[in-house]
Amino acid sequence: MSDAADADDLHFVASADDLPPGDRLVVDVENREIALFNLDGDYYGLSNYCVHQGGPACEGRLGGLLVETDDELRYDRRGEIVSCPWHGWEFDVKTGSHVARPDQYRLPTYEVLESDGDLYVRF
């Protein structure tokens, strides 16, 4: 950690060993439910409260995205799209944006940092 001021905003959440690539972890930090994702070594954090109706936004299927180009259906971005199990709303793990209506709905994101094998979120 760079300095004490930063450290005040950082909250220890898990050991990096608990979150291998392709995995996700939902943690409770000071009354915030935050979902942590490891996409090929890059960490992402999203609020686990669905902006639609309050479901557990990051606890449903972690999968890819069906896209259609030139009349061809393709399954893309495997592991980068998470769904809320209540109604199936899809969110982009990297940005928190709702896939279908990104300008209207987004899950709050959290910066996730690794230091000496431990994971921290900043807020």
Partner: peptide
Amino acid sequence: TPVDTGRAE
């Protein structure tokens, strides 16, 4: 449906 694709449970 979204249940068949695992989006909704």
